[in-house]
């Protein structure tokens, strides 16, 4: 009787395992088919894009896309930390209305921050932590230009290469903080 019970139990487990295995195979087949379809669609979209956009244009767009995603998360994350008081601001939130109607130079003097990248020293404060996301988004174009530069040089388009280099210099100069107005 005991032997009979063991046999029945074993076969029930086997049946259950087989059912699971079949279900998994179905899911796997569907997932593979979907992935194949997605790959085909991506290839078709890419070939369609190549008709209207050059490879460097697509590389620029891809770089921009990735950077934008990172920048958005950085901006949203640092703002949440700031607004919920997890990273308190250099100027307390309740005192902000006393500051935001004054000119930028007066505000900087009161807060005790100089021009250029001096804000980096205050990045532990919530208000200046937000500058990380802003600086990232503002600097994204430089990265995109550097991504495109090899394409121009590869096809010996030196005119485009020179303009790209010039733009990188202009943007880096703006980012450097060297162009202070003494404002």
């Amino acid at each position: 009787m005991q032997e009979y019970r063991d046999k029945t139990a074993k076969s029930a487990t086997e049946v259950s395992n087989e059912g699971l295995w079949n279900a998994w195979r179905q899911v796997r087949t569907r997932l593979r088919a979907r992935a194949r379809l997605r790959r085909q669609q991506a290839t078709r979209a890419k070939s369609q894009q190549m008709k209207y956009a050059t490879p460097e244009q697509l590389a620029y767009a891809d770089m921009l896309d990735i950077g934008l995603r990172i920048g958005r998360y950085l901006l949203a994350g640092t703002f949440i930390l700031y607004v919920f008081g997890i990273a308190p601001g250099k100027v307390p939130l309740s005192e902000l209305p006393d500051y935001w109607s004054m000119p930028a130079d007066q505000y900087s003097n009161l807060v005790g921050i100089g021009n250029g990248w001096d804000w980096l020293a205050l990045v532990r404060y919530g208000d200046y932590m937000n500058f990380l996301g802003i600086a990232f988004l503002s600097g994204l174009t430089i990265a995109c230009y550097l991504r495109v530069l090899p394409f121009a040089l590869q096809r010996k388009d030196f005119m485009l290469g020179a303009i790209l280099m010039l733009e990188v210099i202009v943007l880096s100069l703006a980012a450097s903080g060297l162009l202070a107005t003494g404002h």
Binding site: Y82, L93, W100, Y107, I113, N115, D127, L137, G139
Partner: peptide, 17 residues
């Protein structure tokens, strides 16, 4: 981007705005 750097470096940005 270029102009934003100037405003950022001159302290003319407030995250709360």
């Amino acid at each position: 981007s270029a102009a934003a750097w100037v405003y950022l470096n001159e302290g003319a940005m407030l995250a709360m705005i």
